[in-house]
Design a protein around this nucleic acid. Sequence first.
DNA 1: TCCATTGTTAAACAATTATCAAAATGATAT
DNA 2: ATATCATTTTGATAATTGTTTAACAATGGA
Lengths: 107, 107
Amino acid sequence: MMKPAQVVKALAALAQPTRLAIYHLLVAIGPEGIAAGQVAEKLKVSPATLSFHFKTLCHAELIESRQDGRFIYYAANFEVMNGIVEYLTENCCGGNAEACKVPSKKC
Amino acid sequence: MMKPAQVVKALAALAQPTRLAIYHLLVAIGPEGIAAGQVAEKLKVSPATLSFHFKTLCHAELIESRQDGRFIYYAANFEVMNGIVEYLTENCCGGNAEACKVPSKKC
DNA sequence: TCCATTGTTAAACAATTATCAAAATGATAT
DNA sequence: ATATCATTTTGATAATTGTTTAACAATGGA
């Protein structure tokens, strides 16, 4: 199970419109990843700003990078995403997990 | 599906150690909720600070409050949590969702 | 080698955030 | 009413954050 501090770091990284958009895109792209420049183009973000956000997401271990020639490919780290989801739903309703999937009074 | 702005707001609310702890506690407690004072006691947070964080979580619609006598009970809003989880995993690997549950090269 | 391309880093600035102490609100019981 | 309990609001302060501009690497082709 992830430690609270790491969860906070990951959530903080995602809690910003541009970074959430970047991450959302990388999740949809899948493990192959996508070059930084293509992300800049798709999301209309300046290279410097994008680089800043990539760094934040990398530092939170939400994404990973790999160099290929002149390009740097970024990809989502699905393990960490699953860890966050687990953390958020942990001990849901004191263990009665299904109850939490229903909006209201089932617990 | 939740709008990005609401997701950002919710993630920002959770991206703070004290608030994540509060939320984590409320999720475990379930829909009945728990009085503010008990949260303060369990998490050792001053009333003023706790109130500030409750407000942030409420504003993000992650939690809800209900008054009962002198006490105010807070409870997690599970619908919104499920919305966040959905958003984060949306279009995972271009729709090949199961692949994302495995850490690496399955997409 | 020289150059264009791709991406990162540094410095500066405005804006937002978390915490505390103190005062204020709201609800109940006596 | 008045006292007490539970919680919120206010005001102040220190710390963090996102963006821009400009300058800086690193890669690969002519």
